[in-house]
Design a protein around this nucleic acid. Structure first.
Length: 433
RNA sequence: GGCGAGUUACCCAAGCGGCCAAAGGGAUCUGACUGUAAAUCAGACGGCGUAGCCUUCGUGAGUUCGAACCUCGCACUCGCCA
């Protein structure tokens, strides 16, 4: 849950003239409305800004964390954040460039709204004059009738403009097409901005650059409906230098919810960051100062094998999301399991604690190793497990498993445990009963 | 509503009666080399008790000794026309 100690330690880097300069340096601004005006606005008296999160899953993921940290940096600069969770927009779904979404049941969306609200509010201060305010767009869209919607909002939208939005045109040009439901999404999001502008005098919306079309729907609507100029910032889509998608491990998203991605797995994800990406990750995902990040950049250049930047990054982000105790546990587990020493020399209780951090299973003394690979989730089928053994990619307590018929009998360590490994770094724990 | 095109494994995409568990690419996994990195090279990549068997090519029926490939119905998608 919320860790006030961590929030209170965060600050913006005072070596920058203003917060705008800092977020630009951190690479958080990919597109925006008038930059000069925004810089001035953000350097001036507190404004109210918002960022929305749609409940498309039971948890936020690393992509969303970029948004949350931008919100937090603006809050640290004195501005007032509105954390919006899309109880209504989540029922519709924003158009993805590839294909139509499957509608999520309404009660599921409502459940997810609760989870996301809790997650977002953890990262933003609830103290002081600019404490975060959580809002849900279902509150103002649910009472709106279809007729009112069309008369009061729809009139401001030109279909030609709507068709030109990237997300929409991509879909129209694909063979998936687009439903009227998803086509209408940008109106709903624009409506949010208008509502928040009217209620809170909200002047800025932030979001991913893939949402740029939706962000400008909002600024356009506010201009047309109220005659006011409001702003938007689009953050870059974070990518890996090798072209693969950021925020995925073995094809799975990295979630902020520890039940979906364990703190250990979360920490490992960051430790494995490519040299070519690690400095940019530090800029985006940590509150370390420019000076400190530049120091780490030097270390990557001169002593890359020490992985100092990766370790720092992993510590910073994991403690931010999961707290210091869980991070320490993840680090201790990693040190024990990736250490140079013999596993048999480890203190049994340290080893057991480490294995508890991993995917693990409890089994009988003569269990087959291929079955354990499946039970621990290291492989998804017995066939894949056999293949992995055949390819020489399975290790039991750091010793290569050579036979597909091998069992763990006689191979357990003190305390009746065993460390199962697939490949170089995918580990699981086995507890023998 | 009419006409035309399409629906293949995680994604893209070949196949157009037997040689198809299905080419190729991407993603992913493993090995070598390493720094729990990248790049490179090699192998794997539906399931299973793996020289064999089982379940797949939108879906349901059919033709055939035999169908992802042919016929008919249905669903969905795209385009043009109304």
């Amino acid at each position: 849950m919320s860790d006030p100690a961590i929030l209170s330690q965060q600050s913006n880097d005072s070596s920058f003239d203003d917060v705008w300069e800092e977020i630009v340096w951190r690479g958080l601004v990919h597109v925006s409305t008038d930059a000069a005006e925004l810089k001035e606005l953000l350097a001036g008296p507190p404004i109210t800004y918002y960022c929305g999160f749609d409940p498309t899953a039971p948890s936020l993921h690393l992509g969303n964390l970029v948004q949350i940290l931008l919100m937090r940096r603006l809050q640290l600069a004195g501005h007032h954040p509105l954390g919006l969770v899309g109880g209504s927009t989540g029922l519709i779904g924003d158009p993805r460039p590839t294909a139509e979404r499957t509608l999520t049941p309404a009660d599921t969306v409502a459940e997810w709204v609760g989870y996301l609200q809790a997650q977002v509010s953890r990262f933003l201060s609830a103290e002081g004059d600019n404490a975060v305010t959580m809002v849900n767009n279902l509150d103002w869209t649910a009472p709106l009738s279809a007729i009112d919607f069309l008369r009061e909002i729809g009139k401001y939208f030109r279909v030609g403009t709507m068709l030109k939005k990237d997300a929409v045109s991509a879909r129209l040009n694909s063979d998936a097409g687009i439903s009227y439901t998803e086509f209408s999404y940008q109106i709903l999001q624009g409506l949010d901005y208008l509502e928040l502008h009217r209620t809170y005098n909200c002047m800025l919306q932030t979001g991913g650059s893939d949402q740029w079309g939706n962000l400008t729907s909002g600024t356009d609507l506010v201009r047309r409906a109220e005659g006011d100029t409001v702003h938007a910032i689009g953050t870059p889509l974070i990518t890996n230098s090798d072209g693969t998608k950021f925020g995925k491990s073995e094809g799975n998203a990295i979630w902020l919810d520890p039940k979906l991605t364990s703190p250990y797995a979360f920490y490992q994800f960051w430790v494995n960051t490519d040299d070519a990406d690690v400095i940019f990750r530090l800029q985006v995902f940590t509150f370390l100062s420019r000076v400190e990040i530049e120091r780490l950049a030097d270390l990557v250049a001169t002593e890359p094998f020490r992985r100092e930047a990766q370790r720092t990054l992993a510590y910073e982000v994991t403690s931010l999301v999961h707290g210091v105790p869980a991070t320490d546990a993840a680090i201790h587990a990693a040190e024990a399991l990736f250490g140079q020493g013999d596993l048999a020399d480890l203190d049994p209780s340290t080893l057991e604690a480490a294995l508890r951090e991993l995917p693990n299973t409890t089994t009988t003394p003569n269990a087959a190793i291929i079955q354990l690979l499946v039970d621990t989730g290291l492989t998804t089928s017995l066939g894949e497990a056999r293949r992995a053994v055949k390819q020489g990619g399975v290790y039991l307590n750091n010793a290569k498993v050579t036979s597909e018929d091998a069992t763990i009998e006689g191979s357990t360590l003190a305390g009746g445990v065993a460390v199962l490994r697939r490949g170089k770094k995918t580990l699981a724990g086995v507890f023998v009963q």
